[in-house]
Design a protein around this nucleic acid. Sequence first.
DNA 1: TTAGCTTAGTGTGAAAAATACGCTTTAAGC
DNA 2: GCTTAAAGCGTATTTTTCACACTAAGCTAA
Lengths: 230, 230
Amino acid sequence: MYTYEYPRPALSVDCVIFGLDENELKVLLIERGHDPYAGCWAFPGGFVDMDETTEAAAKRELWEETGLQNMFMEQLYTFSDVHRDPRGRVVSVAYYALVKLSDVKDQVSASSDAQKAEWFPVNSLPALAFDHAKIFDTAFTRLKGKVRYQPLGFELLPEKFTLSQLQKLYELILNKELDKRNFRKKILSMALLIELPERQKGVSHRAAKLYQFDKVKYKELEAKGFSFEL
Amino acid sequence: MYTYEYPRPALSVDCVIFGLDENELKVLLIERGHDPYAGCWAFPGGFVDMDETTEAAAKRELWEETGLQNMFMEQLYTFSDVHRDPRGRVVSVAYYALVKLSDVKDQVSASSDAQKAEWFPVNSLPALAFDHAKIFDTAFTRLKGKVRYQPLGFELLPEKFTLSQLQKLYELILNKELDKRNFRKKILSMALLIELPERQKGVSHRAAKLYQFDKVKYKELEAKGFSFEL
DNA sequence: TTAGCTTAGTGTGAAAAATACGCTTTAAGC
DNA sequence: GCTTAAAGCGTATTTTTCACACTAAGCTAA
């Protein structure tokens, strides 16, 4: 068959996983155990099998290397520089994902026995292997852009959150301060939040109301072509 | 070398080329000469060589199959369904491009001797080979989305154009009518148009002023982070 | 129990942007 | 010179955005 005779680049996937950790936006890196770039940090990833889509490969590698699963994940970009991998020609389809870090923090360290996995703040990453610095830039730029017209923030927060938490998250991603009243007005006017009959616990000041993201309603409105600019 | 022993999908590229033809938005299709899908229409494309990026491959294939070059081109998405190609496993990186159709219309038919190339209105495409219908949907959706916050329209129009032409183009892409005065106000307020000391010729009514897109200024402003919502 | 600290929670007015809307001008063709 | 077809232009209304500061609630520690 024609496609089997053709010399072809290898195909890999890489995953940029964002998580929110105590008012800091972080990404998950793996310390490489062998060459090339042994000892260097890199995004989790690996080669695509013959019987899986690139998205399936990304999810599989992520599960194998970090124990994470079921997160929001989207294709980012395909990187194909001829010399991006010293082993030879490798084209990589990059994905980015958002996880509720608070929910899965233990999970990661537990399953990553083979390789060291660690969360790094997006503003102080170590040197990265391959062209992963470029991949990161692309991912972070995309996240910043996307968050402005799609309610992605909820993917990073726990199920139940306060409006202040949500605001701080947006401030982190957009890298600018937002006015509390205007932010609340706008967010609530989208009517995508369910106010819960609960309050924050264990804080040494007035406890804030908890909210939940209304995923069902969002899907409905999205299907009707509504948009959600911040 | 590890990457050479690994069974791997073939890697191809496909190009969705948009062009504006007399108030109609069209895409360029190639009639396939052999199986699979012989006689079917498909987007121009082909396999990626070992020593070229996917973008270079897209441009090369496009040049070989249609004679087109030097157009605006961007990566669209990577399609990797396991059974998208009956010949075996083929992952395809799709690109979309915008061409000034008025400038190159002859060019295409001239160079496409081997294969039949034809422009089809986006609203009445023939049945497409492989998963190209899906690729088209993705491309058209992307174009609609992108045109709203980036001045892409200019890539489809001739160098010199009238404001009415520009407006009609936006109406076509966005699929809704726009108010003439408001449109002009907004477009001119971006200050990205150079008013030429020329007018339209050969029309049987008052001739409109011609304008040119100020690419240099656009690059400057874009670099400074300005955005251009319509 | 109360004083003090910390974050939650709330409204209004001013400025800017978006929208709706119709008539006069110009050039060509007959 | 009359008709035809599109060009070109301004204003009033509505909507959205932005700036801005105090009171309420709950905990802590003296």
